[in-house]
Nucleic acid binder design. Sequence first.
DNA 1: AAGTCGGGGTA
DNA 2: TACCCAGACTT
Length: 367
Amino acid sequence: MRKEKKIPSEAVAPLAADLHDWYARNHRVLPWRGITDAYRIWISEIILQQTRVVQGYAYYNRFVSRFPDVRALAAADDDEVMKLWQGLGYYSRARNLLAAARQVVERFGGEFPTTYEAIRSLPGIGDYTAAAIASFAYGLPHAVVDGNVYRVLARIYGIDTPIDTTEGKKLFAALADELLDRKDPGGYNQALMEFGALYCVPRSPQCGGCIFADRCMALATGRVEELPVKLGRTVVKPRYFNYFYVRHGDYTWVRRREGRDIWRNLYELPLIETAEEASLDVLQQSEEWARLFAGAGRVSVSAQVYACKHVLSHRVIHARFYVVETEQLLPMEDYVRIAVGELGDYAVSRLTEGFLEKMSANYPALF
DNA sequence: AAGTCGGGGTA
DNA sequence: TACCCAGACTT
């Protein structure tokens, strides 16, 4: 029989009273705070998934300005939504956002759902986001558990169960629910997260003046820097992308990325991905090259004009860019021909954006 | 339970 | 560098 792991939360004075007091004195003023519009709260929560406030701030303002309500978003063009999301990362959020807006219109008559279960059923909304919307917009008693909550609770209660395990997730969810202030779930949730974001920070928190210094197990045992525990192994795999900025007159070519891969629904230049670093010579002898430039006539290729390592959380992309001018107008299967000036209308990855910026700075004649 | 999906900030 | 950020979804 396994020993029941019970966190003795009764042994620690409840956090709510001190938390509310701290929040009143220290919280940031943000456009999605102090409102009850579930639509705007939802937009902010999706944008802020795995994203810092400073990074998402401008995106939020642009989004709610362009799409003031759920019906406006539901009617939006897919590419425009991707363009608004460009540079923010985790693009499935944008795709799910649009899909969810359309479901709100179809399933709920255009009114954002008002129960936890209904909210949770929308694409892109998991346990955290459903609890956030339900408590902030409707005052429903659901505890949020995000990275901040894991950290604050792990430290105060001295919990070293890894947070990225099923056991850890269940344990913290149960504790957060037990601690939730039922009189003000939304205010309590926001305060707990804000406390983690501003004060109980991952590294070098100033525990000296902490409002919980008298009851923090981690501080008492000198384990503040060790908690929370995460198993997390980040294996970074390399990929090799060879891009071609193809020109014929004022035309160039782009393609929308499809399939289960990074940057789905974003646009990119003609690409040959290789299993390892490849020279231009090798690329020119490949089948992909032949297929790409079939019917191009004489093809003149620049030397590599731009190269970089694009680092993602679990990938490092070794990218090389070349400029190609073709004698004939290309058929270029899979790619769409556009005027060079229209490049800016298409949502692209930060990698491609970086190349385009570099090009327009160094070779303005090509743009 | 493990893998995938971005980009940027911080020590 | 390594870790983290108002996580969700797929396999």
